[in-house]
Design a protein around this nucleic acid. Sequence first.
DNA 1: TGTGTTCCCGTGTTCGCCCACAAAGATACA
DNA 2: TGTATCTTTGTGGGCGAACACGGGAACACA
Lengths: 372, 372
Amino acid sequence: MYEINFMYGYKLTNSSEMNQITNKIRIKDIAILAGVSEGTVDRVLHNRGDVSAKSLEAVNKVLEEINYTPNLLARSLASKKQYRFVCLYPEHNLADYWHSIDVGFNQAASEFSNHNVIIEKRYYNQFDPLSFISISNEILLNLPDAVFIAPIFREEALNFTIELKKLQIPFSIFDSMLEEAEFITYYGQNSFQSGYIAAKLLLEALPKESQVLIIRTHRKGSVSNQTIYRNNGFMQFIKDNNMVDFYELINIELKDDDKNSNLEALRTVFAAYTNIKAAIVFNSKVNRLAMDLVTLNQTDVRLIGYDLLEENVAYLKQGVVSSLIAQRPEKQAYLTVRDMCREIIFKQKVNRINYVPIDILMKENIEYYMNF
Amino acid sequence: MYEINFMYGYKLTNSSEMNQITNKIRIKDIAILAGVSEGTVDRVLHNRGDVSAKSLEAVNKVLEEINYTPNLLARSLASKKQYRFVCLYPEHNLADYWHSIDVGFNQAASEFSNHNVIIEKRYYNQFDPLSFISISNEILLNLPDAVFIAPIFREEALNFTIELKKLQIPFSIFDSMLEEAEFITYYGQNSFQSGYIAAKLLLEALPKESQVLIIRTHRKGSVSNQTIYRNNGFMQFIKDNNMVDFYELINIELKDDDKNSNLEALRTVFAAYTNIKAAIVFNSKVNRLAMDLVTLNQTDVRLIGYDLLEENVAYLKQGVVSSLIAQRPEKQAYLTVRDMCREIIFKQKVNRINYVPIDILMKENIEYYMNF
DNA sequence: TGTGTTCCCGTGTTCGCCCACAAAGATACA
DNA sequence: TGTATCTTTGTGGGCGAACACGGGAACACA
């Protein structure tokens, strides 16, 4: 009787009571339809208990019939809970790849600040696993609401995630994969496939018998999975296309920090091999090689590398680098945060493993990427 | 005196009055600092008048010193204004390019519905300028708060924008450019450049003396600027690289609707020209040609086309199409709406002309685009 | 019937901002 | 000085959801 009365009255009040233009349903509407109070609906929606079986059923019945989407604006406005998210990735400078990750996290920080989200950034030394350990320990003491990790150091990162699990702190990973971890999301490139494509771009129009330089930069302390997987993909392309005997692959390893010694090493290589037609660097340091090729007057070499660092882009525009493969680092960071918000604030479903597009950049289309 | 007292007290109230964790500044804070009421600050912020010179100055002074960013959640929640945005673009079916535009607008619709934005879609027949005119007239009578236009028909669209201008209705354009119009934003591809890149991808490894098919699909009633610009870019690449004498370009025009006649026409072409090594279609209809090439057993022809329609992607994966050039139609639509919200609701600055990236898709990287 | 306990439930306040309305102050004129 | 008019200002009531608090109903037991 009570319920019917209300429903009847409800339909009559065509303007003052119901928001008629957008027929958005509010908690109040559900309460009226279910014949309970707003507080009860709220308790049901949040599984907060203290609801009788009868009320529970009534509310659930209404919820099944209608399509209630909470007003996220009102929710965040009313909620007093502060969310503290901590990001953990390598320290860097402006010209570094990791700076783009920084940019993405900053975007997310400003966009979600109204939802009571605070983003803290912690950096480790990517050549020193101990720095990772010590900073991750600090984070554990802070008890953040979520953590985002670039797991350069496999073992150390895995241990960290295990501790997070114990404390029931949700976390996401990005940049490189850590299959065993129970992360909320992963955003990153499929490295194998990006190496595969690199091979296609580098080799497709190359004359047989060419010599091809494959550059590794040495990292003390750690091994980046990325470059290994990329290299594997590269080799797979050669196999798949029966090119094994076509080219002579010359693997050389360069130091990551000392520029002069690389130049001399390269000079030696070019003296020894006289038919080098192509070269690839499996990380963002391709600008180093480009610089050296310019010095050595070897710009006819077809050169491919990774990531849109300012210097890399400059060499691409000059034509020294013929293609760059990119992986949207800003998006990786931004979406990692967005999805964590969806997961723990908005209680929405998120996709767990997300491979970002493998972007192919040439001097003819680079401009529109940079301004987007 | 009054002011100083308040400021002093203000700094003392470290917890109850000020939200200390995120030091977000509220209208209330500004009011206290300026020694006026919240209502006055509100009037200043919205240029709503009825403010004395003295109060105005006081508030502006505070605003200059601090960095006030309004809480957009609270703003939208409180605002009673409904925004009605109307989109105008070609009618389509699921397999069509314009369906992706639809998807983008839908995304925007659900994301901005909480900000009191309603998105209405109106479709015209892309082969009938009159349909554009009649529907645009209907829109003018409706007095929406903003309009988004895909200006396929240059003259007609321009006239429409002039009328919108008179009514002071802001509008944005997407897909193709309309330089003379006073739009808020443009999102679309630089067609010339995308044709330029297409030429690079198609011709770079092509043997001299090859014959190249250039396909135009005929559209009764209208001419799409896009395909003309793309063609121009294509030709420019040939000129820039001194390739004019390398290839024999065969321009053929196919009907847009009748499949059989195209097959016969193509059969004739392949009978007449026996060294066709490459082909390009300057719009999303490349799947038609791909189908015919399969029928004619001519899949060795290197084929390039535009846009990620399901059928195009299928042929790309099969290897019949060697590359597709894409332009993020969903993003175009979504960002058009987002920027209009920023402009008229959030009062933020937006960038006027936005060229979307020219994406290069091959069978090796298509997968990661489709799932993103 | 009175008292205590447990279980449910409704109400009221808050978030930051918008906006209407009425009150207060300023000015002009009789 | 009083009254009318205009200008300027402060206050209060929403927006939709979160959450605390206190009160009512139901039951048990004395």
